[in-house]
Amino acid sequence: METTLEGVTIHSPGSRIRRRAGLIAWYAIAIILAALFLFPIFWSTLTSVKPPAEASAAPPTYLPSSITFDNYIKLNKYGAGIARYIFNSASVALITVFGTIVLSTLAGYGFSRFHFPAKNVLFIMVLAALMIPFQSILTPLFLLMSMVKLQNTLIGLALVYITFQLPFGVFMMRNTFDTVPREIEEAALLDGASTWQMLTRVMLVLVRPGIITVAVYAFLNAWNEFLAALIIMTQEANFTLPIMLTSVRSGYYGAIDWGALQAGITVTILPCIILFLLLQRYYMQGLMGGAVKG
């Protein structure tokens, strides 16, 4: 009679069975949904290692008769070769990551720890880009890039991406600096550290989680972006992977090499998934940081 309400429900035999059935149902639904979510990616990757004839078979076959990398070899025959496009995408993404981190960390530190005239106006100006879709300024950005002779260059595209990443980066870094207790700075100041030393020797270590978050977003967005790359890059040798894939899809003389396309898709999406799995914690922090703001 002394058992709690919860105790009674758990110990009654009927509800134990119901609980068991509920658990099994939960896992069954969760697993079926997981299979549905993973299937397109799994199917593409599996097809990329099928023999080319099976990869292009109509109607499609299910399991491969053997595993080969022939589709990857065929993929390499498009344009300037797959290595070139991986290099293009990686360069653009890494320049974007580097530029975004440097600009955001400096600005985040400045906005978080210093007082100067027009600070709020400048902060709102930098953040305004969050509310204005980049699609609406692509036309002048394209002209601007042509004017400074950066159209059709990896640096030019990276500069455009840094612009898109900067509002989130500055916002994220300002918030990260805000979480560092002021006592740490005061102690370092007493030890005679200069402002610059404070940033590089003391603060950088403390705000590293924020920097990683900004870097993950910068990398993924630069690696995946389609429309700006389509506009800025007009020569095939400078294409990034997503743009290059559309020309694989167009095929030679209209015949689409489906196996090569799946090889290209696999090469393009695998780095994103691996990076996300490794740095998931930082990615989610960024999502929540943005969500709190809204």
């Binding site: 440097v102 600009l103 955001s104 400096l106 600005a107 530190y109 400045g110 906005f111 720890r113 210093f114 007082h115 100067f116 600070k119 400048l122 100006m125 930098v126 305004a128 880009a129 204005i132 300024i137 950005l141 601007l144 500069l159 455009v160 840094i162 612009t163 900067l166 500055v170 402002t195 940033l199």
Partner: peptide, 17 residues
Amino acid sequence: AGFLFVLPAVLFTLAMF
């Protein structure tokens, strides 16, 4: 110092946005 820290991001935003 604070102004100099935010200056690169501000200039970038002015020029590119």
